[in-house]
Write a protein that binds this DNA or RNA. Structure first.
Lengths: 199, 199, 199, 199
DNA sequence: CTCTAACCGAGACGGTACGTCACGTCTTGAG
DNA sequence: CTCAAGACGTGACGTACCGTCTCGGTTAGAG
């Protein structure tokens, strides 16, 4: 997020940044998200929970949004890997169920939703989300894997939007309602489109 | 939103509430949303812009979210009425283009997005959005109108989610990118599903 | 200190400022000065001790220095009134003993010393102290009263400086050391100067 | 100030401390005091200006006060040596004028005033100032020299307080106002006291 | 035509989070 | 063991916004 970024940068002088502090912050954010929710996520609170100075947090990330993005990105990659199944249908259903679970119970998913929320109000956050969208990226991975057996899957972000859009919409608008029925029917429809000879 | 709601409640004594103040607040919110964005939307700022006391705002609505909801609901009904077209395809495309324009330029749409964002962090707002979702309601209206010519359209919120979900997702994640291509392909797919004998 | 100053100013609109909050702050400052000393005097601490919002403190006074000045000025007038004595010598000795006690034990006096200290670093505070110096003003009052029996007392701030300067210097440099001997000898000297026909 | 103090302690091992760093710090403090004033005197700022590590500063001195004390003490001895004059009066006037100039323009004098200010809030600094007071020591030197021709000069710190107290008071309270008139009259009075047969 | 009650504007109130700054300590690699 | 550099934990700073309260003044229906 912040500068210094990708290791290297040759020899830095002075005391090196504490990786320990960095992961403590990310862990604290994860914990607090599930325990108290985003509304109770204070910079001061994060720092205290992580046993870290406030300034240190600002040294690594410029915004609360950047912390959330990092917390979300890192775990999303792991949590949104759909296990291989026998059929495309089962694989898509599994993935969307992962997505739903991710968005409703996983710290990373809660972070993603808060991030998406903040992006609607803060253009800086919007830019961040626009560039690195863990949900869309995971969907792209799954679709790439299925492209052989589903010749109709379009390229780029369109297919990803068509896949996860309805589930995301349901979770954003009705976080409490289960999306299982929606997922089943939605996958059925998508298969009807993508597997056929058309398009 | 607040009590007193729908006129009624017979005869109240004392000075009646100023309808003038109420619409001034809604107008101020609309203006400030397009001029400065949600981040600069302060209760104090709204009151001052509307030439209204702060307490008066809280008399009509309990939260900033309730104001946004009212500002969004009222205009959304007008702005999301798809004009009748010759074909179902054209009608759906028109509707989704309306949706995209609503979400990106209309004050009511910006309010809706901010509201949806806030709902991810504040359960009270989430309840509000879950009960009255202008986007889903408009989609339901359109789908009802087309149900005769599209026998495959499922009932309830599933179809609405499938219709608007991808477009909303695109706008939420990439507000700047045009969704025209996505809309065209998406409608084409939906028609393939809904018009056929299957499902 | 702050604007609003001298009452009147005709009809103000809005909720009037809470005199209760104002005196609570001044009382809190007095208490904390004797209990913990100036170093522990935090704006946040003052506000909490006074049961008052932080912004309220800033509404009444712009600086910590302005609070101290007000706390000092108000009490200094009362605490530095030398009781009438039979002789000029006794009256001056009484006054200087009051000054010493004021500077070492009274909250107002501790505030004055901290203020004087801050004035050496902050030009804004220096201006404040230069305009309203409770110590000098009290000395001037005493000297005015004695001018009849001491024809040699010069006008203006010179006499006041000559009277209180040595005692203040002693207290500033050696707060712990008693100044009684210094006071006795100093008054004796001053009388030798001021009572004579010279000057 | 810090340990190691007076050279000695025989043979230390490891890299010897850099005297160059020490004087660079003192020079930086002097410069910054006249350029920006005490308020802008930061430990980090001093170190950077001196081209020195922060830890190095703390190795030589424990507090900012100790640096100021050293900066003040060293130069005060030179700057407060009253040149020999024909008369006691002229010598005292010269000395007090030096004092005034010292306190208002000299870096060492500004440091002394800031130190005196800090001493009112911090007992540790108060102890420091109480033990080594450059102003009082210089006054004692002058008075010792004049004791032969002024038989009435009392011993100890009383005379010093009586001599410099009024001038210091004037400078502390009204740094901008010239003290020339005060000095002339004050010396005249002191001579009336000290030269006479009385006391 | 008053009385009364709820409204209106304005703005101060007690809280709390923000991002910055300075402190004094700790941790690098180099000398 | 010291040096320059700079990150570390701590905590105060002044600002902004929240939602409530308290003013004087306004506007209706009830007596």
């Amino acid at each position: 997020m912040c500068d210094m970024s990708d290791g290297r940068s040759a020899e830095r002088i002075g005391r090196p940044r504490s990786e320990r502090a960095r992961v403590a912050v990310l862990q604290a954010v994860d914990d607090m998200l599930v325990e108290q929710g985003y509304a109770a996520l204070t910079m001061k609170g994060i720092a205290e929970r992580a046993g870290v100075g406030r300034q240190t947090v600002y040294r690594w990330w410029n915004n609360k949004a950047e912390i959330l993005m990092e917390a979300s990105l890192h775990d999303a990659e792991d949590e949104l890997i759909a296990p291989p199944r026998g059929s495309s249908a089962a694989e898509l259903v599994s993935f969307l169920e992962l997505v739903e679970r991710f968005l409703t119970v996983s710290p990373a998913g809660l972070a993603y939703r808060s991030l998406l929320g903040e992006a609607q109000n803060d253009p800086e956050v919007a830019r961040l989300v626009g560039e690195r969208d863990p949900l869309g990226e995971s969907a792209a991975v799954v679709l790439d894997r299925l492209r052989d057996s589903l010749p109709g899957v379009p390229d780029g972000r369109t297919a990803a939007a068509e896949l996860v859009g309805p589930v995301l919409y349901r979770v954003l608008v009705q976080p409490g309602a289960p999306a299982t029925g929606l997922i089943a029917r939605h996958v059925e429809h998508l298969l009807g489109i993508w597997s056929g000879p058309e398009s």
